[in-house]
Design a protein around this nucleic acid. Structure first.
Lengths: 154, 154
DNA sequence: TCTAATCTATATTTCAAAATATAGCTTTGC
DNA sequence: GCAAAGCTATATTTTGAAATATAGATTAGA
């Protein structure tokens, strides 16, 4: 691996590099809190072979966004989860009518799509943590501005 | 007023008829709780000349929806408010680019548009409690299904 | 090798949002 | 006329979500 490769790796914000302890420090919460956010479906850290969590730079940013929602705006975890469940996945993924009809994520608003088991073939084999629905639509200001941007283009 | 008129009035679900005590009984909460929801911006009851609150049938349904969010889904008031702030008012009202540029409700996602002071001329003299943004987009299942319905038609 | 960090799972504690209560005043309606 | 209900405003209490702690096992890395 040459110097250019290394530079590229370092600048890849989606590369999982932080152990949970480091991530907790960066975000300013306890490791338990990070595990709780994961249980609630707010964040999907990568895992090592031995099931240890690894967080990327974008994960850290997502977590900071979650903290803003909690500390500045007074949301609880259920509210953040509910907000995330509003992401217009069917539009982002371009689901057909048939796709929608066979997708629990489309039909229910109780969970973000990445927590839903029975999905259409569109997402069946997708790695949710790499999906734009999960990636691009967070909760700080992004969700509303996403709707605004998207509607401009329809 | 004839029998037909009376029938019509009784079937008008938007007519404010319930005093706060009655509304509280119907919804199963205290009068103070209803006042709190109003302070938080979740509900806009009509007022009599002497500033007493009056709730309509649709208000009661809105409040029941709020209770579902709290009891069944674990939201707090900030979360419900945040959810309501996601309503795509600019689309519902058909705001132009200029309208959007001059509207704090479009630019911020911290409050539902009906709580925002400085709005574009589109909403300037509107009675928010009669506006479809407030009326049609509640929080139970409506918000997501609204987005789904709306996108179908664009 | 061996300690520190991580894992899952569960139990306990904390603290602030939500509910309740109080006060002083006004309005409604019997 | 007057009791009941409503109003605003503030203070106090409650309660469950979120954080902390504990236990027992595994893994990473010096």
């Amino acid at each position: 691996m040459n110097a250019t490769d290394i530079k590229e790796r370092l600048s890849d914000k989606t590369r999982p590099v932080f152990a949970i302890g480091v991530a907790a420090d960066l975000v300013g919460v306890s490791v338990h809190t990070l595990r709780m956010y994961e249980t609630e479906g707010l964040i999907i850290p990568q895992r090592t072979k031995s099931k240890r969590r690894l967080y990327s730079q974008t994960d850290i940013e997502r977590l900071q966004c979650i903290r803003v929602m909690i500390e500045d705006r007074g949301f609880n975890l259920a509210g953040i989860k509910g907000m995330m469940s509003m992401a217009p996945c069917w539009e982002i993924k371009g689901c057909s009518e048939a796709d929608r009809a066979s997708c629990d994520a489309y039909k229910s608003s109780l969970e973000p799509c990445w927590m839903v088991k029975s999905k259409s073939s569109v997402c069946q084999d997708e790695v949710c943590s790499e999906c734009p629905v999960y990636r691009d639509v967070t909760t700080c200001h992004n969700m509303k501005s996403y709707l605004q941007e998207h509607w401009k283009n329809t």
